[in-house]
Amino acid sequence: MIGATFRRITPQLIILGIVLLLNFLVFPGFFSIEFQNGRLFGNLIDVLNRGAPVALLSIGMTLVIATKGIDLSVGAVMAIAGAVAASVVTGGGGWFTALIAALAAGLLCGLWNGVLVAFLRVQPIVATLVLMVAGRGVAQLITEGKIMTFLNEGLIFLGAGTILGLPTPIIIWLAMGTLVTFVVRRTALGMLIEAIGINETASRLAGINSRVLLLAVYLISGVCAATAGVIVAADIKGADANNAGLWMELDAILAVVIGGNSLLGGRFSIVASLLGALIIQSVNSVILLSGMPPEFNLVIKALIIIVILVIQSPTVKHALYLLRASAGSAVPEAHAVGPRNSPAKETRS
């Protein structure tokens, strides 16, 4: 069980290691972590901290994508959740009320997407596009188009505070990742989600209630996005409806893809997606630390990501597998190591 999980995330771990090493090369102090002002302070901590929003989004996105869906609305839901939280505290509410209200807003958004996809059978990309476009408008209505700043210490703590020296967002995404992984793997939810992602007709005929499951994944995605939205707003002590979570849905999808999860649904790994999110943030870190002019940002990011995706492509994987097989002394066990599209899939009964 543990061995299988480890084997599944090995490519992501290797890539993360390489990108971190790249960070070290452009900035030798990268791995140093100090303790100052009651908090851990260092670039590695920044990667974990700044990766929080995409990491949180990638949790929900992994499940949605596992059902063959996609949730384009997460960025907009972040903006809505941030706006809701900010308006609650500026209206005199406490941080906890604000948090609950924001999460409720996220659930509501998830419900909207889920009903469109599961019950009205709208294609996920279209269904969530609606909220992606309209959601930001809703957030702007709540903030009246300005950055709604707040000074509520409790709320700010969620984005900028520390627990035992670790920035709160790190704790939050780790906790959320663990919780969701635990729920989907310790119950049958994960397997049933994979089943409908792989073959929805067959799953329905096997008696699986695919509607409820589809609804569930969009709800989870909504809550994850709302949490990310609260963190982002708390971090800057203000809800910036225009920019909060802007284009972040694409980073979240990318994290899931770098995590080796198929956009065609089916088998998924939340841990691998979280590693994907960290890889993206590490790439951002390379760019920031390198000191290159910002005109190069997108080019560098694109290059690194192309390399990552090419390494993960089935063809390259297969080539590497053959290389290993021909160079290695023992012929590897066919089903454990063989890549998905290798001819090894032919079995003889």
């Binding site: 310790r186 119950t187 049958a188 939810l189 049933l192 096997a206 008696g207 699986i208 499951l213």
Partner: peptide, 14 residues
């Protein structure tokens, strides 16, 4: 086990 699990519901894994 898919159908048996589906009948039990996702909250009660086999």
């Amino acid at each position: 086990i898919l159908s048996l699990q589906a009948r039990q519901g996702w909250t009660r894994p086999l």
